[in-house]
């Protein structure tokens, strides 16, 4: 059974709209200082998270990245609790302990966004290995960007997944830049070439087309679930915003305005089969309402008590020694 909220084009459009609007609100909250630190906006890449998650079952799992809001929302996390997490509130997904870069909801199989590029891939392989050992049909989707293509641990993970025939779908979101470094000047060979070298079936798909991503992801998930081992998808996409919210202050010039504009013309929301229909306008209004409720939840959620700052440091309940003078 696939994720019910992504079962049809309208549901997929709705979730893409939710992610876009969520990111716009998050940006606003970063600018106003409500969100401390910053975020890595997912705007522009929505078709990848939604297309891949549309191929997953509720019990399937994923590992995410520093740019993780889209993956977390697509898998079904509550937007109010994700917003509360960005605010560091008690009602956040992680109780305010993780923030934007570590958002997780284990009850939905979201094994966490991760602040280290490429770090999620081996975790996905191990999770998939364990699930298969336990006789569960779980498939694990591992999201990462083109920057991770040059992390050694990602290559080790491809190999491990291959020899274990682990039920993993590796999803490379190639948005053209590892922060400011163009993939064209950073990636020797190719993304799919890396997967092929480890005997993993790989395909490149239009990451701005949610239905194309979904179709490719369904092939990959089917292969994984039937014991055919891992697959690799390179999704060609683009981030409409800066790498992170700090970047906006510096007015960087590594991308031309023309380039950004040309990708904005390929907005995945506009190319959805639902776009332009009266249904889409209704969905847009519904998402505004949903986010308003989510924002209300987040803003009214309590601030954590500083006395609880080391809670959860150890699963066993060990309390660390205080840093204060005795």
């Amino acid at each position: 059974m696939s994720l019910p909220h992504l079962a049809d084009p309208a549901g997929r459009y709705r979730t893409m709209r939710l992610i876009r609007s969520f990111e716009e609100l998050a940006l606003e909250w970063v600018r106003s200082g409500l969100v401390v630190g910053g975020t890595h906006p997912y705007s522009g890449q929505e078709a990848v998270a939604v297309g891949v998650c549309a191929a997953l079952d509720p019990a399937d799992q994923l590992t995410s990245t520093h740019r993780g809001h889209g993956h977390v929302l697509a898998k079904g996390a509550d937007p109010g609790r994700l917003l509360a997490e960005l605010l560091g509130r008690v009602g956040g997904l992680n109780g305010g302990r993780g923030g934007s870069m570590h958002a997780a909801d284990f009850s939905l199989g979201i094994l966490g966004a991760n602040g280290i590029v490429g770090a999620g891939a081996p975790i996905a392989v191990g999770a998939a290995w364990a699930a298969r050992r336990r006789g569960e049909p779980t498939v694990v989707a591992s999201f990462f960007g083109d920057g991770a293509l040059n992390q050694g641990v990602l290559l080790e993970s491809l190999n491990l997944a291959s020899i274990w025939r682990a039920p993993v779908v590796f999803v490379c979101e190639n948005n053209g830049y590892a922060t400011t470094l163009p993939a064209a000047s950073a990636v020797g060979g190719s993304a799919c070439g890396r997967a092929a070298a480890f005997g993993i079936p790989a395909e490149t798909v239009d990451g701005m087309d949610v239905e194309a991503v979904r179709a490719a992801a369904e092939r990959a998930v089917r292969r994984a679930r039937s014991g055919g081992g891992p697959s690799f998808l390179e999704c060609l996409t683009y981030r409409f915003e800066a790498h992170h919210t700090m970047e906006r202050r510096f007015r960087l010039t590594y991308r031309t305005a023309e380039e950004v504009a040309s990708w904005r013309e390929r907005d995945p929301l506009a190319s959805s089969p639902v776009a332009g229909l009266p249904e889409a306008a209704a969905i847009d209004r519904e998402v505004v309402e949903l986010l308003s409720t989510a924002a209300e939840f987040a803003l009214t959620s309590a601030e954590p008590d500083p006395a609880t700052a080391t809670d959860h440091l150890y699963a066993s309940g060990l309390r660390p020694r205080s840093g204060a003078a005795l």
């Binding site: 094994l111 770090a119 081996p122 975790i123 191990g126 364990a130 641990v153």
Partner: peptide, 13 residues
């Protein structure tokens, strides 16, 4: 690095 982290993933499951 991969098999240590695979241990983490397996532990999470």
């Amino acid at each position: 690095q991969a098999f240590t982290s695979a241990g983490i993933g397996a532990a999470l499951n």
